[in-house]
């Protein structure tokens, strides 16, 4: 379970010495239960990406707490947060963020390599996952040899390989055509139902938000009035 309590964050902008503070998050409180798909919807500049970065531990908030199954992420240092991410989180990015020098197989294998999993076990796990996600045929392809949809499937496989309980998805269909978008959304729903993985999806697209069990609508760093919508 993810619990966010009174989260606030500001960015400092302007020349050094003449900086001004721009508040991005203004005391957010929200939560995501285990096995839910939670979407955070908002227009550009609403603060949804900053919220995701804090939830994922990329950024330390000015105040407030982020608790994941009771563990306070905001109390950890950078190295501790990195280690926590490796064990508990998966990531799906809008621009796929695959390593250009690695094949599809090696990209999926990367989190296991970082975890120090032995090579033979890594190979077995990646083979199984590529098989189950229908990516076996493109295993030796480099990212620039893949379509957007294929790249995002590889990205999702990479997020899944460590079997994390939570996957953060930042505009996962933002770079895809509508047909491929549907494929990816179906894949997310299927993974959520099959494995009970919690998905936190950042999107500006209501169609994407429609698959969520819980949706938070953000405006100007705050939850919009009546922003919480339970689909179920």
């Amino acid at each position: 379970m993810i619990e966010v309590k009174g989260l606030a964050h500001s960015f400092r902008v302007g020349k050094k010495g003449k900086e001004t503070e721009v508040p991005v998050l203004k005391g957010l409180t929200l939560q995501a239960a285990d096995g839910e798909i939670v979407s955070i919807v908002g227009r550009s500049g609403s603060g949804k990406s900053t919220l995701l970065h804090i939830l994922a531990g990329f950024l330390q908030p000015d105040s407030g707490r982020v608790l994941v199954d009771g563990t306070d992420l905001t109390a950890m240092n950078e190295a501790q947060r990195a280690a926590y991410r490796l064990d508990h989180f998966g990531f799906v990015f809008q621009n796929f963020q695959l390593m250009p020098g690695l094949t599809a197989f090696e990209n999926v294998e990367l989190p296991l390599t970082l975890k120090g999993v032995p090579a033979a076990e890594r190979r077995r796990k990646v083979e199984e996952l590529l098989e189950s996600t229908g990516l076996s045929d493109i295993r030796s392809h480099y990212p620039n040899e893949l379509s957007g949809g294929q790249q995002q499937r590889v990205g999702i496989a990479r997020a899944l390989i460590t079997e994390p309980p939570i996957i953060f998805a930042d505009e996962p269909t933002g770079s895809l055509d509508s047909e491929t978008e549907q494929d990816i959304l179906l894949l997310i729903q299927s993974l959520n139902r099959t494995y009970g993985i919690t998905f936190v999806i950042i999107t500006h697209d209501d169609e994407v938000a429609a698959i969520a069990d819980r949706t938070y609508r953000m405006h100007d760093g705050e939850l919009a009035e009546g922003g919480l919508r339970h689909v179920i």
Binding site: A56, F58, E78, A79, A82, A83, Y84, R85, L86, D87, F89, F91, Q97, L98, M99, P100, G101, L110, P111, L114, K115, R158
Partner: peptide
């Protein structure tokens, strides 16, 4: 830079 960012996002620590 981008690759380092991806690795850090996935969980690579600063020491690594």
């Amino acid at each position: 830079t981008r690759e380092i960012g991806v690795m850090k996002a996935l969980g690579a620590g600063p020491k690594l």
